[in-house]
Design a binder for these strands. Structure first.
Lengths: 132, 132
DNA sequence: GTCTTAATTTAGACTATGTCAAGATAGAAT
DNA sequence: ATTCTATCTTGACATAGTCTAAATTAAGAC
């Protein structure tokens, strides 16, 4: 993983200890954490970290395009460091979210919405583990 | 639209005035309302309707399979009376959600997750109106 | 180093969505 | 009429997220 400090520098954010900790937490996982989960994780090392700082940092990173906010599960937005286009699989029992490679599905270009600018297309697959 | 009373009867729920009003509101629209929006709508006619009754009724209808809960926008689940499989387009500015016919996309069967039971597959398209 | 200013962080208040339990109410059955 | 069950309401609670004002921290000028 790229250095947290250089990620922050790259988008013109001062690399404070709080931000470094948030970036470390969210960029080193593929678990699609919510802001509250990031807060809980980072507070283990940095107990005074405030909720507002986590939300500010994550939202700034989304604005800068280094992180993608995804609406995939009930109750909270999750954050995805994978900004290449891809699909998602959601385990409806555990809530776990997995990336699905882009070329798993052939999504044709959308020509039927000429006065809209399409910002995102993805296939969302939901399912649960079979019990044998 | 099918009669609200018969919708309720069909899934073994007593057709009380509150439930009839909720069913009327959510089945006669294609606007994908949230529970809070349903509450607000129905309260115009039935001001004593409680929040819990709306949530109970909507969740019961989802359990019975007459309504589908969709996680498509930040902050709240929306309810969709269209239970045939289809895709969705989300206007990221207005928050409006539109149904997209199933055969707009060719989604191949998913063979790569043999120990999962797939409960839902849909393409989610997001975009915003072009300003000319 | 000190001062000034700008950026950042913090705590806490606040709002919105959603759940839950306890009591009140209404219907149906006897 | 009485009982049993289903439903509804109120209000408390939980969680996600935003906002603000004050405190901290860092940066730049001198």
């Amino acid at each position: 993983m790229e250095n947290a400090i250089s990620i922050l520098r790259r988008c013109g954010m001062q690399p404070t200890p709080q931000r470094i900790a948030v970036v470390d937490s969210v960029f080193k996982t593929t678990a699609h954490p919510s802001a509250e989960e990031v807060l809980k994780n980072v507070r283990k090392d940095c107990p005074t970290l405030s909720r507002a700082t986590v939300y500010n940092t994550l939202n700034l990173l989304v604005e800068k395009g280094l992180l993608k906010a995804q609406v995939l599960k009930e109750g909270s937005v999750v954050f995805d460091p994978n900004i290449q286009r891809h699909h998602h699989f959601v385990d409806e029992d555990s809530g776990q979210i997995y990336d699905v490679p882009w070329d798993t599905f052939k999504v044709p270009p959308i020509d039927s919405l000429p006065d809209y600018e399409i910002t995102e297309v993805q296939v969302v697959v939901r399912g649960r583990k079979k019990r044998k």
